[in-house]
Every structure is written in structure tokens, then in C-alpha cells.
Amino acid sequence: MTGLLVVTAVPAEAEAVRAGLTDPTVTVAPVGVGAAVAGAATARLLALAEAAGRPYRAVVSAGIAGGFVERVAVGDTVLATRSVAADLGAESPDGFLPLEALGMPADLLGVGSAVPADPGLLDALRTALPAATVGVVLTVNTVTGSAASTAALAARHPDAVAEAMEGYGVAVAAAQAGLPFAELRTVSNPIGPRDRASWRMREAFAALSAAAVALR
């Protein structure tokens, strides 16, 4: 059995994680942007490791994220209580309907549109990162970029602290493999009207390297 698999979207995130690692048994793999590619690539990595007789012990989705204003600040570290597919569902005259309201499971395991973090893994990360904000992390296919969409998303998910694009896909792959899962993010920008001038990528990557010490 091998150690932890940490999945990021892009190489820059993987490099930031590796810069802070102290455990040589942790594998870090950039797999691409979006829940579909992240889920497919994670499932492949897990299947290959299992076939080789060296299965992973747990999976973490890691990277940078947008943070909800007044819930987290730029540069903060976030740990997900659960990873939610925020736009997987249907529109209706009364508003957005998640899969559960439609009576459809996301997969044959009945995972649904939200995957909780493994309690033991989350507790270990919380202990190692006591300053981290703990809350729901949303997975979206289209990153929020207007005041109206931000307000709607915040109202629909009052316990959400951040949004990213891969966590739910990685979580479903881990659930299919029967492995513990967690999501760790650092905040690079406030969620809201798209303003690249407000993004602080350097600070977010530095925070990600600092948080990576907990990945062991």
C-alpha cells in the first residue's frame, strides 16, 4: 500500500504542494481543470495503483479557490466539510433543483450532489491546520463572475466558504474506490464580479505550500 494521493488541477498547484511536502510517500498529480477530467483522471490513477498492488490510502483534492466575501479572506486556507456539485441539477420556475430534488443519484453508489469529507482525515487536517476555515466547498463548471450569480449561490449555500472546479469529481472517484477523501484549498480571490486585479495568486500558492505540511 502506498501513501496519500493529492490531486490538483494545474501544474502550478502541484508545484506549490510539493514545495511544502515533508512526507515522501505522498504522490501529487496535476490532472486538468473541471470535475469531469479530475474525476476520470483520479479514477484512472487509483485503478492503476490498485492493479499494481500499491493502492493509495486516501485522496485529497488540493489547489486554489475563490472565497465567499465575509466568510473567508484572500490567502486563507479552507478545509471542506463536504464537496458539493453546486450546479449539477435543473433549473425550475422556483429556482435551482439539485439531484436529490429530482430523485436521481449521481452514480450507482447513490453519492448524490454532495460528498462529505472523511471524518478522520478531516480531523487530522484540522489538527495540523488549526487556523484553517472549515466549511462547504462548492464545485462549479462555470466560475461565478457577477454580483447576481454570487448572491444566488451564497443564498443557496449559506454554509459554503469557497468555490473551485474539481473537488466533487475527485470525491466521487475516491468514493467509488472506497477511499477516504478530503478537499484542501487556499483562497486566491473573492467570489464576485470578475476582477483579475483583485486576484492574489502568489499569496494563495504560498499558503498552499504552507498547508501542504499537513499532507502526510
Score class of each variant (00 low, 15 high):
A206R: 11
A151Y: 04
A9M: 06
T77Q: 07
R71I: 05
V143C: 09
A152W: 01
A132E: 00
L179Y: 07
A214C: 09
P98G: 00
A177V: 01
G32Q: 01
A16E: 07
A9G: 10
S198L: 14
A80S: 02
L99A: 08
V78A: 15
V37E: 02
L121C: 06
L79D: 00
P116Y: 06
A160H: 15
E163Q: 03
D159F: 13
E50P: 00
M104L: 14
L122F: 05
A36S: 14
V69Y: 11
V6I: 13
A14H: 06
L129F: 10
L21Q: 12
R54K: 15
S188V: 00
L97T: 05
L99M: 08
S198N: 14
T127A: 13
L121K: 07
A151C: 10
A38W: 03
L121G: 05
V60D: 02
M1H: 13
D87C: 00
P30I: 03
G63E: 12
A148S: 14
E91R: 06
L45I: 06
D94L: 14
G20W: 01
A62M: 08
A124K: 08
A182R: 10
A210L: 09
S83N: 09
A211K: 02
A154T: 14
V143Y: 11
A62H: 01
G120V: 09
P98W: 03
A35N: 09
L46P: 01
G39Y: 07
L153E: 11
A40G: 12
G66I: 03
A174W: 04
P130G: 10
R126K: 10
A151M: 04
A73E: 13
T139Y: 07
A12G: 09
D159L: 13
V143R: 04
D107Q: 14
A36I: 14
D118A: 10
P30K: 01
G169Y: 06
M165F: 00
I64E: 09
A114D: 12
G53R: 08
T25K: 11
D23P: 10
A151D: 03
S92I: 05
A49Y: 10
L153V: 15
P119E: 07
V74L: 07
T77N: 05
P158D: 13
T42C: 05
E100R: 14
G20N: 10
A132T: 05
G63M: 02
L97G: 01
L153F: 15
A162C: 08
D195V: 08
D123Y: 08
V140Q: 10
G34V: 03
D23K: 13
V213F: 14
D123P: 07
P116C: 00
V213N: 12
A35I: 02
T8C: 06
A164Q: 14
A114S: 11
T2F: 13
P130D: 03
V78N: 03
A43C: 05
D23Y: 13
A65Q: 09
R126T: 12
G75L: 04
R156A: 13
G3P: 10
A211W: 00
T42L: 01
